[in-house]
């Protein structure tokens, strides 16, 4: 075992800020949707708009960071080991088997994570941002161009929100499936994680 730095300072800042914003967007968004009452409708609307802007800025920084550092390759889906990763979660994990794809600084995400995160980055986040800002600025027809109505935008935005809720739930659970129950969480806070030497394999 070796202490390896796998999350840079920006990555951790990005992750935790994103967590805060998604949590805030989720609570305020579903309040606006009419699912429950927390801050009051007006406060929720204002918070939702402000955190939407913050999320946009953060996303621009993250995209910039990915392109500049080349870390975007971490999120590219791979074909190998998808099946064995699925099998691991379905049976291996109960038999104390090792993770089929070892975590390294060069490849932090397992094949399933790559698929899911890629989906978030390519599909869910852009859809949420685009529908979100359409919602904010084009909520009336013929202003300045015709959107049939808010309905399509709003329903897509809601759909994306539900997917994010499901993602967050699964994500929270899977944090506990690392080398130890808390090793993943610790890594995202400190940046360091105890990883097996790749030659051990």
């Amino acid at each position: 075992m070796e202490k390896v730095k796998i999350y840079s300072r920006f990555e951790r800042f990005w992750h935790w800020t994103q967590m805060v914003l998604i949590l805030l967007l989720g609570i305020t968004g579903f309040e606006i949707h009419g699912s429950f009452e927390v801050f009051g409708f007006e406060t929720s609307v204002r918070l939702h708009s402000a955190s939407g802007w913050a999320f946009l800025v953060l996303t621009i920084f993250a995209a910039f960071w990915m392109i500049v550092t080349g870390q975007s390759r971490q999120f590219m889906p791979v074909r190998n080991n998808v099946k064995s990763q699925i099998m691991y979660y379905m049976s291996g994990i109960f038999k104390n088997e090792p993770h089929p794809v070892p975590k390294t600084a060069e490849s932090k995400l397992n094949p399933l994570q790559r698929i899911v995160y890629f989906g978030l980055i390519i599909l869910v986040f852009p859809v949420q941002l685009i529908t979100g800002f359409l919602y904010l600025f084009f909520h009336y027809p013929e202003k300045p161009f015709a959107l049939e109505s808010l309905e399509t935008v709003a329903v897509l935005h809601t759909l994306g929100a539900f997917l994010l809720v499901v993602f967050v739930i699964v994500h929270l659970y899977l944090i506990t499936t690392g080398h130890t129950i808390s090793s993943n969480l610790k890594a995202m806070i400190t940046g360091y994680e105890d990883l097996e030497h790749s030659e051990n394999k």
Partner: peptide, 14 residues
């Protein structure tokens, strides 16, 4: 990076 800066962002947003 994991606590203070995210809270700062939250503070500005609020």
């Amino acid at each position: 990076v994991s606590l203070l800066l995210p809270i700062a962002v939250l503070y500005i947003t609020v």
